[in-house]
Design a protein around this nucleic acid. Structure first.
Length: 293
DNA sequence: GTTCCGTGGATCGTGAGCCC
DNA sequence: GGGCTCACGATCCACGGAAC
């Protein structure tokens, strides 16, 4: 299930897990799917996925808070431990993830729909939770841009395994390209394909450059003489970085290592505040605060 | 009439930052 | 070091409107 929220929520359902009888309405099933796909979500992030511009965001937050607490009480979801109190200003947000019972419930529903065998439950590891949440935030910004701008549509936004590409590299070795996210947006008649890497200022520049080389390798190896680059469209490789300082650093390293490429072709380095103007207007460098009120 | 949902306002719990 | 203020997210309560 993709989290570009469908107009028709999944239907409510009753699932039996062992001796437990679990009754869920459509929105609660949707919340479980959201957490299954995104692994870690704060209450605010869940609200942003559910939020529509026709209501107040504060109301969306209250709504999902009630439902998340209900699911928590049913042991379907769990909170990341040790999050009470924060290292920044004020209390840190609740970080939710799917519990084993929630996983089993979704698996049961999936088996009913597809007859596929059950996937085992993997307990979440919190090592990469911050990076995962940053990826989720980027996806939310794309959703928000599409909500705010009539001329923009978010046609696709997939993360993790769904965004990975398998190909044969220039050395003839079968390999894979693993972006953080792959998205397709449209602006009027224009369609844009994005490979997105969300940077948390934790990777050494040399690793960024190595990743850029992988993208070049992939683009060259998948170039089709009739269709052009992969997907028939020239994709941009978007590095979303947390600060302007980091942006300038990565841009400098990329320019030094790939002097033959013009700025933004195919590597673009931006902060999240620049994403709206890039996607909605095709402009680089314009800062826009993403607000939900 | 009852229930559900959205809303506004107030309050609580927490750590960071500032000042003495 | 201790107290105070501030910022922030979460939560509670009451109210009104729509749907059943």
């Amino acid at each position: 299930m993709d989290t570009l929220i469908p107009d028709n929520y999944p239907a409510g359902t009753i699932v039996k897990i062992g001796k437990k009888r679990i009754a869920l309405d459509g929105k609660e099933v949707l919340l479980l799917h959201l957490l299954a796909e995104h692994k870690f979500l704060s209450t605010q992030q869940v609200a942003k996925f559910i939020h529509t511009p026709t209501r107040l965001f504060k109301s969306s937050v209250r709504n999902v808070t009630l439902r998340l607490n209900k699911l928590h009480g049913m042991n379907l979801i769990a909170l990341q431990p040790g999050r009470v109190g924060g290292v920044y200003h004020g209390a840190e947000p609740n970080i939710w993830h799917l519990a084993k019972l929630g996983h089993d419930t979704l698996e049961k529903l999936r088996r009913i729909e597809t007859n596929e065998s059950k996937k085992p439950f993997k307990a979440p590891t919190f090592t990469f939770a911050a990076h995962r949440m940053a990826i989720n935030d980027t996806k939310l910004i794309l959703k928000h841009i599409a909500d705010k701008h009539e001329q923009v549509q978010l046609k696709d936004a997939v993360i993790e395994e769904k965004s990975w590409r398998y190909y044969t590299n220039r050395a003839g070795v079968a390999t894979s390209l693993r972006p953080d996210m792959y998205a397709v947006t449209t602006r009027g008649q224009l369609e844009h394909h994005w490979f997105i890497e969300v940077d948390c200022n934790t990777e050494a520049p040399v690793r960024i450059i190595a990743k850029c080389n992988m993208y070049l390798d992939y683009l060259i190896c998948t170039q089709d003489s009739q269709d052009g680059w992969c997907c028939g469209q020239f994709p941009a490789v978007l590095w979303v970085v947390p600060t302007i300082k980091r942006r300038e650093s990565l841009k400098r390293h990329i320019a030094e290592n790939f002097p033959d490429f013009a700025v933004g072709q195919p590597f673009i380095v931006i902060t999240p505040q620049e994403l709206p103007s890039l996607v909605a207007e095709g402009k680089l460098g314009k800062l826009t605060e993403v607000t939900y009120e």
